[in-house]
Design a protein around this nucleic acid. Sequence first.
DNA 1: GTGCATATTGTGGAAATCCGCAAGATCGCC
DNA 2: GGCGATCTTGCGGATTTCCACAATATGCAC
Lengths: 199, 199
Amino acid sequence: MSARAYLVDDDEAIRDSLGWLLESRGVACESYPSAEDFLATWEPSLAGCLLLDIRMDGMSGPELFDILCERGSTLPVIFLTGHGDVPMAVSALKKGAFDFVEKPCNDNELVNRVIEALKLDENRRAAASGADSVNARVNRLTTREQQVMELILAGKLNKVIADELQISMRTVEVHRANLFEKMGVRTAVELAQLLAGKR
Amino acid sequence: MSARAYLVDDDEAIRDSLGWLLESRGVACESYPSAEDFLATWEPSLAGCLLLDIRMDGMSGPELFDILCERGSTLPVIFLTGHGDVPMAVSALKKGAFDFVEKPCNDNELVNRVIEALKLDENRRAAASGADSVNARVNRLTTREQQVMELILAGKLNKVIADELQISMRTVEVHRANLFEKMGVRTAVELAQLLAGKR
DNA sequence: GTGCATATTGTGGAAATCCGCAAGATCGCC
DNA sequence: GGCGATCTTGCGGATTTCCACAATATGCAC
């Protein structure tokens, strides 16, 4: 499923006009008539951004946003509202909403925001995939190799590691070489930088 | 100068009442009748938070905020406004304002926000001082030592470093030992972790 | 000129790392 | 029982690091 704008609004006229606007600017778009409908479809891999009406029958926009956040969604959310409400805007933005715009709004502005949001999501996913590949590599390490890695990252010498793990230095050397191989690094420094901030 | 709430509002009545409210809750407070007055006093070392009225004679709150941001201020800013304006709230928060509250507002709420803002600033400064101490140490390194450090962080062996810098291995060893000493680390791994994310 | 910081190099030895070669033990799975 | 993954160890040599001792050169500031 490629990246697209997910539009959630209970007003069919708005879904149609906004959907047409976005498509006409080259932004793929998918519409949902209720928060519940979108929530049923949502999964963490959905990429793109979310255009969310505030007031809807059933679940409100902010309620959906809260639930998605709890479930680990990082989808940038642009709130749409017909009735200006400062506290709600403040609350939404402080919770991490991408934007909060009042209807009616300038078409160009809105499309630009959507494009910005799509770009943000793309960048985030690119960064996360890097982290994932590192995690995947860490998980391929055997238990012993992970233990040795911890001690290497603590800056300890092989002899000290051998002592702490109650094994011979030679064994430590073997684990060390194997885990470097698996992690795709050639020195302890590279390893430290690869895992910077991950422990 | 200890941390405090800086209150900027052109309405003397509000300065007095808000100042009294904050003081009565144990929050040190300092008032300014105009954005220009505060700007004249401001310096990067000012710690605490800023309570900023939107509409004022002369420079407006958002204008002051923009200028402070340009000058590198990290002071959390709470905007105060009497006339709800969603686009302005959105703009302020997206630029990094801490909060945006409408007057009149609940006293307890406001004091709580101020306390949160003060805590945020304190945490930020604590984190920054750690980073600063690292930067200070880096700055104490000589040019050559910094060059050698870069290459060490690139995971290169002393012999390679010697080759690239066109100096003897022995000299690299000397620089290496000296910079480790100055940076307060004992291994290249510790060095890499100390500078994680800083280059 | 003197003094200080910086940069440079050499010698030589102790300590540590890196690595190929070889091999034994355990454990779970088919 | 056999196979594969994992953990383990030893030997020996090449390579690298670490460091004390010793020394020369340059440039800047007082």
